[in-house]
Design a protein around this nucleic acid. Structure first.
Lengths: 334, 334
DNA sequence: TTCGAATATGACAACGTTATCTCATCGAGC
DNA sequence: GCTCGATGAGATAACGTTGTCATATTCGAA
């Protein structure tokens, strides 16, 4: 017993091959009578169309690519979950392609992927979003692209994103509202545009509250645990150490926590710590992290949605973030 | 300018289409002369074969599926990285398919995936590995299968795994060697065969050391953070609380840590805590976790390797685990 | 020298769909 | 009653590869 083909279906249903194809592709001009006969035959034979044949014969492949160069399991997992969910709803398949933005073969690899799989569209996550040569290649091929949280050429492609400036502003304002005046800030990796945006939000909230910006309180991080540890060690060693540290990722916030524990600094009594992302990590460290919830899964879903609904038409969608207060922040003890 | 086809390549190289195909597929009986001409043409035209056409015309699709129902981002990320790596080396593509082992449509979904994509093979991770109906469907289709850490029908398919019994034994023996006599154990989720194996290893080490097994020290967990917290609360409330707790996942160990912090129990001075898996988490909590390193990425790589190298031939491969000592364990203070 | 096997290449059908074109039917408007 | 557009259905040609078979050449052994 070999796989059922469209021919088998047409024979069982007693209609032409093309009519079966019409039903499968939900085309117009099919009578209810025919549609029903075909659907019955499809169910009876447990028929599933060959993706390869569809791709070869048609103009679409029902496949989209997700291109990323992101070392965070949590980010990738949720992004895939969101994109995958939307793909399943549309009977599309998601092809995941990790890459290395520093590799000279990056552009060729992306081109090869598109050629081989005949992708109908591409979703990119930072920092791949901002690699000019890769973007140019995609434009050359005129393939629909949706970028997640792009930093450059904002209007060049469809995009989904959150308001990083506002989010960092929210968190900083929250810390200020608790009574903190000296708030340390750990920036993210320079490759990510969001890093700068979060710093901007931090400064914006300080300024609004009439608190002067102190460059000594800003530590350059890389989004990872080590950076957080290093930042905490540096910031807590200052003559006038901060009473709160806002790290622009949860990993870095965890690093701050670890350093504080090691130095015997009580959190949140002696030091408040805030993160950004609301990864699983935030609820698994102690004390659990006050952080900004970034709806990564929803971003993925929205990205796929834009791709499937609008194709080449450029569309933008901003998703809401949320301040999540947990155990790592409190009012400073005077 | 449209995509280059094999026809274009054959024209540029001045050979037949079939010869180009031979070179591309590394078939025998091609002269160096021909091979070189074809390779030059391929490079010049930046030609990439259409996967769809290859699948349709040939017997192989150059695609394998990775089927999982696992909520751990870390596990999935690394498994994908390993499988993906091996696929890239062989110019195969990996299709990732999350699923729900409790869904009645599970078998149909897997069947549909195989039909539509004409997969050349399937890799499954626990707990999907042990769903009898799904396995039966795969056998029916005679598709090569590799299972990661299967629990049932061990010899029915190729498999890669670690020795969970020995690993848990190692950890327990290590804790005993530190001087611990009352060692709590938190089991994993019942759906996973590894859960039982780890408990066996724990008991085995106790017995060898002449320490009686005390059922009160074993707490049933689910592999997640909450379980760990609940376990620690229950175990530490015993009349004779343990001096060490061995949780069979890092997430649960993190839960134990959090509960200990909350209860004011110092780790490792008053309580040693050990995990299992060595996920990123292990180095990000405080104190960092003593745990068993499970080479998830390597397991993925090996699984794909077995699939690509041996196909239907059943082959098994055991990978080494490793005890990693970090800050969460110490000798008990008498 | 001759023959068979191994090597090297090509012609052409086949894979399972969708696209395009053709044809038939049915109502509505003149 | 006739024409025209909308609707419904099918025949047939792609799509870009690989599989199969045919054919030519080369090499080694009898």
């Amino acid at each position: 017993m070999t796989r059922a083909t469209i021919k088998d279906v047409s024979r069982v249903a007693g209609v032409s091959i093309k009519t079966v194809s019409r039903v499968l592709n939900k085309e117009r001009y099919v009578s209810d009578d025919m549609r029903q006969k075909v659907e019955e035959a499809v169910a009876r034979l447990n028929y599933h169309p060959s993706q390869a044949a569809r791709t070869l014969a048609g103009k679409r492949s029902f496949q989209i690519g997700l291109i990323h160069d992101n070392p965070s399991p949590y980010y990738i997992f949720n992004m895939q979950a969101g994109v995958g969910q939307r793909c399943r709803e549309a009977d599309f398949r998601m092809i995941v392609q990790p890459c290395d933005i520093n590799s000279p073969g990056l552009v060729d690899d992306i081109g090869a992927l598109i050629d081989q799989a005949q992708l109908d569209g591409i979703i990119m996550t930072p920092p791949v979003t901002d690699v000019g040569t890769a973007l140019a290649e995609l434009f050359r091929r005129k393939i629909p692209v949706v970028r997640v949280q792009p930093g450059t050429d904002l209007t060049a492609t469809s995009a989904v994103y959150i308001d990083n400036v506002q989010a960092a502003d929210d968190m900083t304002a929250y810390l200020i509202s608790l009574g903190h005046r000296r708030i340390g800030f750990v920036t993210g990796h320079g490759n990510y545009f969001a890093s700068g945006q979060r710093l901007t939000g931090y400064r914006q909230a300080l300024q609004r509250a009439g608190i002067g910006f102190d460059a000594a309180l800003v530590f350059p991080g890389q989004f990872d645990f080590q950076s957080g540890t290093a930042a905490a060690e540096a910031l807590l060693a200052l003559d006038q150490p901060p009473t709160a540290i806002f790290a622009s990722s949860d990993d870095m916030a965890a690093g701050v926590l670890a350093a504080a524990h090691r130095l015997g600094v009580a959190v949140p009594d002696q030091l408040s710590v805030a993160g950004f992302d609301d990864t699983d990590l935030a609820q698994v460290v102690w004390p659990s992290l006050t952080t900004i919830h970034q709806p990564i899964r929803d971003l993925g879903y929205a990205a796929a949605d834009l791709l499937l609904e609008f194709g080449e038409t450029i569309e933008r969608r901003q998703l809401p973030h949320k301040l999540v207060v947990r155990g790592s922040t409190a009012a400073p003890k005077s």
